[in-house]
Design a protein around this nucleic acid. Sequence first.
DNA 1: ACTGCGCCATGACATCTGTCATGACCAACG
DNA 2: CGTTGGTCATGACAGATGTCATGGCGCAGT
Lengths: 201, 201
Amino acid sequence: MIRLLLADDQALVRGALSALLGLEPDLEVVAEVGSGDAVVAAALEHRPDVALLDVEMPGTDGITATAELRRAAPDVRVLIVTTFGRPGYLRRALQAGASGFVVKDTPAAQLADAVRRVHAGLRVVDPALATDSLVAGESPLTARETDVLRAARDGSSVAVIATRLFLSEGTVRNHLSAAIGKTGATNRAEAVITAEGNGWL
Amino acid sequence: MIRLLLADDQALVRGALSALLGLEPDLEVVAEVGSGDAVVAAALEHRPDVALLDVEMPGTDGITATAELRRAAPDVRVLIVTTFGRPGYLRRALQAGASGFVVKDTPAAQLADAVRRVHAGLRVVDPALATDSLVAGESPLTARETDVLRAARDGSSVAVIATRLFLSEGTVRNHLSAAIGKTGATNRAEAVITAEGNGWL
DNA sequence: ACTGCGCCATGACATCTGTCATGACCAACG
DNA sequence: CGTTGGTCATGACAGATGTCATGGCGCAGT
């Protein structure tokens, strides 16, 4: 019996995945949580063999939850199950210690297999996504550029970003300009979009 | 036996929902499709009693699929199952003829009940979302303002939007200015965000 | 010790944006 | 028929944005 932990913020999806995996004779869902913060505690309590984590979650996201879980319970293997196949997500997930990475539009029949492979100690990665990740490479943005671009996501003006990050307006404009250049954008909004698409934010 | 049709672009979610609903003795999934375009054809072929449609789908979205389905097969009731509880989505879905509207973070146990209620001819609507919809009201944007704002979503400059919509730059700026005013934003990016959040785009 | 690089800042410049006034055309409505 | 409102356009203006040159500071690596 492979014991599973499910983490997804959407209760309906969580329950549905539970039903899907529960149909397999050798799989057993022993815990379900709705946020990344609850992952470690639930894992310590229910001792799953494999944890299926979503990336987009309120509070702690799936990737940092992966890192925390690896530290707190190294014997639990992590399979990331996410909506967005962003190159940066894959890279960061593997660096955080995930054993597998599955996108939510893979056929349902393959999920159980992915779980079994991960449990057996293998790596499971969508090959198309893996090449994307190689092409896109690591984030070219420096820490500060990332901060500033992240602060610009909600459409804030330079002045607002500056006060929020305790910077001068000129500095914010410089960082933004650098980010725009590095992302190949012509524009703050474009830069945000491509950086998000690559999982750099 | 209530016959069901599932439409969701994410295969994993689709399969998982199928597994979840298949556990109920009185429910039976007779068709699954991955895009809005395929909904009507599948409905005509498999004659479901209730169709569960996602809103965000490639090609035809769930709301227009609802309208098409109501016309092609009026006896099929529609239950919208979506990630985003945007007020405008609810309003437009009901106007298109949907019988129910469920957000994906409702508990999994309630989905089967929602299906049964819809099948019985009742309306199913998240009460919190319903009040939100009343508060937010209908979109204040005119058709053209919506077009321009939609074209601005990807961070395009005024010049690009103008050529794409065959307008002069001044006109684009006027429409954008009007949209910014109506959305209470100070900014093009902010206007896009609030309009999207309300389901106006 | 020197160099490179990230970070912060300033100032200047060209361009882009958002706003406003104004006017024309057309459709809908009373 | 006059009014209202949406659409398109122009021109002008202030303010925001993006770029660039320049300089100081601190922290690596050679």
